[in-house]
Amino acid sequence: MRKIIMMLAMLLAHTVYGQNTLPQIALPLHSTAHFISPQPVKYVDISSKDIIGDLPVPNILRLKFRDTVSSFKDAVVTITGEDFIAQYRIVAGTDESPAMIEIGPENCRPLDITSPGLTQDQLRKICLGLITSSEKHPVKKVSDLGMTAQVNRLYTLGDYMFIDLGFRNRTRIKYDIAGIRFSIDDKKVTKASNVQSIEIKPLYRLMSTPSFATRYRNILVFRKMTFPDNKVLNIELSEQPVSGRVITIPVSYKKLLQADIVPVE
């Protein structure tokens, strides 16, 4: 996918560079300009070595001139998000030139790659809608050492799987989360068998909560997963520092197949 984005950016730059069709941005001579994107920035191309840039946070591109620049005419910067591509013509400005530039829809072109998925903003909106649902009648529930872990609901939407998790701490000791690990493991493990564990990473998580005193709930999003009936999806909550309060919820493939469809408004 990255190669496709690069080729599209180069083609677009070749088509319009040198023409007056690109929005022009005056880059301050002795300070930094920040491009604010409505989505996390996935790819950046700067046509001139006289300009350097970085991503201090996922949705901000920071640009400035190199200290060694003696003369500069212009350049093109290409910025892509999850579903858009934008280009700007960069010219030398003054110290009074604007330091913040918002990437608006008027300067964006849709980025249509063969199988477009949901953007981070779209996933967030869906998760916020799902988390308002009731936690009653969980799909799976496990209790141990004063902790209760449960899969509240399972949802599916196209190639996405949404897992609604809930945890309850019935002790008086705050729980500091080391991490939530998801892996596909064999249901039955014997001493003679070779244990195969496949860890899977979420595409998106609604919240990043470092600790909780009594209750914690989150929704995590994965690509559609399939595995044979002799394996199980294990969801493991672990505590930091090293602690015995580790709790694992096994979810069978049958449960995943019974996932609800995300309600569409």
Rank of each mutant, 00 (worst) to 15 (best):
D121S: 13
V76E: 00
D74M: 04
I90F: 00
Q87E: 07
S97Y: 09
R89W: 01
K125P: 00
I126W: 04
D121Q: 08
P98R: 14
F65M: 02
V91K: 05
A92T: 03
R66N: 13
N59F: 09
A99I: 03
G117C: 10
Q87F: 04
K125G: 09
V57H: 02
G117N: 14
C108T: 15
I60P: 00
V77G: 10
V76N: 03
Q87M: 13
N59C: 06
P110A: 12
T94I: 06
I103K: 06
R109G: 08
D112F: 08
G93Y: 02
I113K: 01
P105C: 04
I101D: 02
L63G: 00
K64L: 06
P116G: 15
D95I: 06
V57D: 08
P110S: 03
A92C: 07
T119S: 15
L111C: 09
I101F: 13
Q120S: 15
A75L: 00
V77R: 02
T114H: 08
A99N: 11
E106A: 14
D67I: 09
P105N: 12
D95P: 00
A99R: 14
L118V: 03
K125V: 15
V91G: 04
R62K: 14
S97K: 08
G93C: 06
R109K: 11
T94P: 01
A86F: 05
L118S: 14
R109D: 07
P110K: 12
I103S: 01
N107Y: 14
Q122A: 14
E82R: 03
G81N: 02
A86R: 01
P98D: 13
A92F: 03
A86H: 04
L123R: 07
V91T: 13
K73F: 11
I113C: 12
F65H: 03
I113V: 15
Q87T: 04
M100H: 13
K73C: 12
V91N: 05
I85F: 06
N59D: 09
P116M: 14
P110N: 10
R124C: 09
T119H: 05
L111V: 03
D83E: 13
E82Y: 03
I90A: 05
V69E: 06
E106P: 00
Y88V: 07
V76D: 02
A75F: 02
G81R: 00
S71G: 05
D121A: 11
A75T: 07
D121L: 08
V57W: 04
A99M: 09
D95E: 11
S115Q: 12
T94Q: 05
I101W: 14
R109E: 10
D121F: 00
I113W: 05
E82S: 10
D67Y: 11
Y88R: 02
I60C: 08
D95A: 08
T94D: 06
V91Y: 01
V57C: 09
D67Q: 14
E102G: 05
P98S: 15
M100L: 09
S115M: 15
R62H: 01
V57G: 03
L111Q: 04
M100P: 00
S97V: 10
F72S: 01
R109C: 14
E96P: 00
L61P: 00
P105K: 13
T119G: 07
T78H: 03
D95V: 04
F84I: 11
E106Y: 09
I79V: 13
D112L: 10
E96F: 12
D83R: 09
A92Q: 09
P110Y: 11
Q120P: 02
S71E: 13
P58N: 12
K73E: 15
